[in-house]
């Protein structure tokens, strides 16, 4: 599905990614974890072509992403911070993104699911953080793409919406799609993901199931397993 080979990226003097090799197979939910500033978002943005890598190769569904924009038809991306143009209305934004990609009717179901009807005529600048995140989710999930990338999808969501989001992600997985998630909420990751990828200091430190991580670190639960990686490497 996604193959990353020897990816390097530097921002100024700050080496963020130093030789990431990663192969994401088709189907299933993959969680990308790592401490703050470990390069999770940079990795995801490289796959999307928003960050241009210094070195390395990325292929998405067999297509090299260099100098290519068509492959993004096959990706649904949820950005970390929902920064929308503040003078647009929710309805206008949804319509515009549909014009850019392809017509779909899925948005109506999602708007109902997240109870967004009362906000459709409001300007995006006047929405609360959580509501913006819901709009963000609608924009991401309304297209039926084989690869879904979610950067911190839980930010600002209330408990009910969180449950709906989990159901939504599980439903996408049941359709055989590949979902890539970054999150700092360990319980969310543990509940939802099939496999985790742990990034540390710009490299892949661990890739495998949660069970494998627990055995490797000798910790009974997931949260402590993650914490032990961090203390072992920073103490």
């Amino acid at each position: 599905m996604v193959t990353i080979e020897n990816l390097h990226k530097k921002f100024g003097k700050n080496q963020v990614l130093s030789g990431v090799d990663l192969n994401i197979s088709e189907g299933g939910i993959f969680a990308v974890l790592g401490p703050n500033g470990s390069g999770k978002t940079t990795l995801i943005k490289s796959v999307l072509g928003m960050v241009i890598p210094d070195k390395g190769n990325i292929t998405v569904l067999g297509e090299n992403i260099k100098k290519n924009s068509e492959y993004r038809h096959k990706i649904d991306y949820l950005p970390q911070i929902a920064n929308f143009p503040s003078n647009l209305r929710v309805k206008e934004l949804i319509k515009m993104i549909k014009d850019l990609r392809k017509p779909t009717n899925e948005d109506e179901r999602l708007i109902e699911l997240f109870r967004l009807e009362p906000f459709l005529d409001k300007k995006l600048g006047n929405l609360s953080g959580g509501t913006k995140q819901k709009v963000n989710l609608v924009l991401t999930f309304m297209f039926d793409s084989p690869l879904i990338i979610l950067d911190e999808p839980t930010t600002g969501l209330d408990p009910i919406s969180l449950i709906r989001l989990k159901d939504l992600i599980k439903a996408e997985k049941a359709k055989g799609k590949t979902v890539l998630i970054t999150s700092h909420i360990m319980s969310f990751v543990e509940e939802i993901s099939d496999e985790i990828v742990f990034i540390l200091e710009g490299k892949i430190y661990f890739k495998g199931s949660i069970q494998k991580l627990k055995t490797k670190t000798n910790q009974p639960d997931f949260e402590h397993a993650i914490a032990s990686i961090l203390t072992d490497n920073h103490a």
């Binding site: 068509e70 993004r72 920064n83 850019l100």
Partner: peptide
């Protein structure tokens, strides 16, 4: 329009 640009960059449009 920087925010809007970022939104567009994730869409299948040429830079």
């Amino acid at each position: 329009s920087q925010e809007f640009t970022e939104l567009l960059l994730a869409q299948p449009i040429k830079r």
